[in-house]
């Protein structure tokens, strides 16, 4: 659905169902250079399971207009304001990659308290090398292509996909190309500059789930495992794939998330 939020056209994926603030809401936060299409196999799945789902395209991403947020904190404030605007209270936030950092900051400021936080391919820090930062200004398309290649495991290389006929690389590149040109650089800088992750992780008091990837080259497994140790009682799973868990292992990821959500009830 499209809303006007903070003066800009803003798209919220709802998984093909209407948003219902009386239900438990799953708020999916996309990663750097991504948008709601990266959660295509989660949004519909959970919307049809009876949850209210929102997958916002952050400003300048996907089908949203506006200027990209310039820090993780700014992203978190934007999401916080959106949840308030939509009067959503029973919220479980699910972040992927950069979305995990945003979730950490959102947890600090969301007044109604998040019901749970789910980290997909997450860490408390996501340093970005200078070459990629520079390339994201000079040639965002090439930078996107490199991220798509690094980000996928062997299924990406070999065009293996449980979604018949779909190519991880071809689809991934096009998803990233849908964003406004400056969005990727702002995202990558936001990740690179973020340094409050350790304290933010230690302060999590709500149920937490982390799903990490064995062959993750963007937020390496080693970093993810250190991160989950910072969180009290974080349920952790490791899947055999690359960074793009939502598209590489949708069935397994959905199953893990679903089981976790059922325990919350």
């Amino acid at each position: 659905m499209i809303i006007n939020f903070k003066g800009a056209k803003t798209y919220l994926g709802t998984g093909g169902k209407s948003l219902d603030s009386t239900k438990k809401t799953l708020c999916f936060l996309h990663g750097s250079g991504q948008n709601h299409f990266s959660f295509v196999q989660q949004a519909r799945f959970f919307a049809y399971k009876g949850y209210s789902v929102i997958v916002p395209d952050m400003p300048a991403h996907g089908l949203s207009d506006g200027n990209p947020c310039k820090s993780i904190k700014e992203n978190a404030e934007w999401i916080n304001d959106l949840l308030v605007e939509l009067k959503l209270k029973n919220v479980v936030v699910i972040g992927h990659s950069q979305g995990c950092l945003v979730a950490l900051e959102l947890n600090k400021i969301f007044k109604n308290t998040l019901e749970a936080i789910i980290f997909v391919a997450g860490s408390n820090e996501i340093p970005v090398n200078q070459y990629l930062l520079d390339l994201s200004i000079e040639n965002p398309q090439k930078a996107s292509q490199m991220m798509v290649t690094w980000g996928h495991g062997i299924d990406g290389d070999m065009s293996i996909n449980k979604w018949p006929g779909h190519s991880h690389y071809g689809e991934g590149n096009n998803i990233m190309c849908m964003n406004k040109p400056k969005a990727l650089n702002c995202d990558l800088n936001s990740c690179n500059d973020y340094s409050d992750g350790i304290d933010a992780a230690k302060n999590i008091k709500v149920p937490a789930l982390a799903v990490l990837a064995k062959n993750d080259q963007m937020t390496p497994l080693k970093s993810g495992l250190k991160f989950v140790e910072l969180i009290e009682n974080c349920e952790t799973h490791i899947l055999d794939c690359g960074h793009f868990l939502p598209s590489e292992r949708p069935v397994e990821l959905n199953s893990i998330i679903n089981s976790f959500l059922l325990k919350l009830k």
Binding site: S159, I160, N161, P164, G165, H166, S167, Y169, G170, E171, N173, N174
Partner: peptide, 14 residues
């Protein structure tokens, strides 16, 4: 389909 998508550099194929 996935082989064709890869060879053409497309997002998806049928």
């Amino acid at each position: 389909e996935q082989r064709l998508a890869a060879l053409e550099g497309g997002a998806s194929a049928l």
